[in-house]
Design a binder for these strands. Structure first.
Length: 450
DNA sequence: ATGTGC
């Protein structure tokens, strides 16, 4: 190991720590140019290469790794806030909303876009910014996105034709842990910050969790193969195929960065077009307009990405896989919109459970200004399908409305397969890395079937 | 996570 590995866990979470996740994290600590420490979040669990809930920063002369970003490049979460009090919404509204949203946004593995006419090259270069400027967004959307909805350095020429063929999935949700949820602000912990983020106690909001779909998956697969072969030529001994890595300044490393930025923009555009479709669905169901309904973007976070950032006067490449950038109030890296508060961090819980909006603190410097991205798995997808029955899942999600009739199709997403998100967040609160802003409680959820 | 794969 070149550096130490730190993992943040409460006593309650300690039993869930897998030996394999520790190995993946310490493996990452052995890669050339890794800086200061590698970090595991309290939602850590075994992934491909770097564990999910892992952070690895590398210096200029160090490596870049596709597996340390993850299969779903720029998987992320966005939150839309409405002006609708949850007391004014009934079960019939919710049912109709789910139907109208599903009419517009295909859900589940392998689903294709209902939209056409967007040039993939524009999407890969421009992300959410391209769509918003085309009219698929509100004026303030972009300043409420990480990277303002467009990652610089994207070069579609570095995305393989096979990956591009899989790029016809704009405004699709996907499967697995991806979801859309109608929630309401159930509790406010920090009035000032909540107000600044536009979060009002009792109001309805929409949480969207998805990424770059098949395109990002293919980019990761392509470049893992390329890096795996090239590493030998650079004299890098790889601890595992999942951590295949090459020097940042090598042609392969540069190519991956440009392809990753392209896939990142695809994911931003996906969430932006979903937002457009969700807004349309709300307007139809409530027979109203966005001026009345709100549906303003609170924020859009990336949780699988590598970005160049400054620490200790050095430029580092911070790989976050299942971790969210959380800059504290006053940090020079913040956009003017969030300079006084820190950027909002969106942390979804498991199905039927609360989600949270939190912010980072000065102390989060210890984690390269990163906090956890969710609850974190306890059971693998297959273990969850084997061990949880549809009735047990139903008992856990309670009154939360679900679009999926056959609960047997989403057992891998049962809350029993996940840690308690509040325990996970409180671990970082106690460690001084984060502060809670609001709690969101679910009313209805849209999941894709396996 | 994923047109659920070598």
């Amino acid at each position: 190991m070149q550096v130490d590995a730190y993992i943040y866990l409460s006593e309650k979470l300690l039993p869930y720590l897998e030996d394999e996740a520790i190995k993946q994290l310490t493996d990452a600590a052995s890669l050339p140019g890794v800086y200061r420490r590698v970090v595991g979040m309290p939602d850590i669990h075994t992934g491909f290469g770097l564990p999910i809930g892992g952070i690895m920063a590398t210096e200029k002369d160090g490596v870049i790794s596709a597996g340390a970003v993850g299969m779903d490049i720029n998987c992320g979460v966005r939150l839309l806030m409405t002006e609708i009090p949850h007391t004014e919404i009934n079960k019939k509204h919710l049912t109709t909303l789910l139907k109208e949203i599903e009419k517009r946004i295909p859900v589940g593995v392998g689903k294709k876009s209902r939209h056409s006419g967007f040039k993939l090259e524009d999407v890969l270069k421009g992300g959410a910014s391209f769509l918003a400027k085309k009219g698929y967004g509100l004026p303030d959307d972009l300043m409420c996105c990480e990277e303002e909805g467009c990652m610089p350095g994207a070069n579609p020429d570095k995305v393989s034709s096979r990956a591009k063929e899989r790029g016809d999935q704009l405004s699709t949700l996907g499967g697995g842990n991806h979801f859309m949820e109608i929630v309401y602000v159930a509790q406010v912990y920090d009035e000032h910050t909540a107000r600044n983020f536009g979060l009002r106690q009792g109001n309805i909001a929409v949480l969207i969790h998805t990424g770059s779909r098949g395109l990002g998956h293919q980019v990761c697969t392509d470049y893992t193969e390329i890096m795996y072969k090239a590493a030998k030529r650079y004299g890098i001994s790889l601890p595992s195929k999942g951590l295949a890595a090459v020097p940042i300044d090598s042609p392969e490393g540069q190519d991956y960065y440009e392809a990753m930025a392209s896939a990142t923009n695809f994911a931003f555009a996906n969430r932006q077009l979903i937002t457009y479709d969700v807004r349309e669905a709300f307007c139809q169901v409530f027979n109203s307009n966005l001026e009345e309904l709100g549906l303003k973007l609170v924020y859009d976070v990336c949780h699988n990405i590598a970005k160049f950032e400054q620490y200790d006067g050095r430029q580092l490449l911070v790989h976050r896989k299942g971790a969210v950038k959380a800059l504290p109030p006053g940090h020079p890296g913040l956009s003017p919109r969030f300079l006084g508060t820190g950027n909002p961090v969106l942390v979804p819980g498991s199905m039927g459970n609360p989600s949270y909006v939190v912010v980072g603190t000065e102390k989060a410097r210890d984690t390269f200004y990163s906090v956890n991205h969710g609850a974190g798995r306890i059971l693998s997808r297959t273990a969850a399908r084997r061990n949880i029955s549809p009735d047990e899942l139903k008992a856990q999600i309670g009154d939360t409305l679900v679009n999926v009739d056959r609960l047997g199709k989403i057992l891998d997403e049962a809350p029993q397969a996940y840690k308690d998100v509040e325990e996970v967040i409180d671990t970082l609160v106690v460690a001084g890395l984060t502060r809670k802003v609001v709690q969101l409680k679910p009313l209805a959820v849209i999941k894709g079937e396996e």
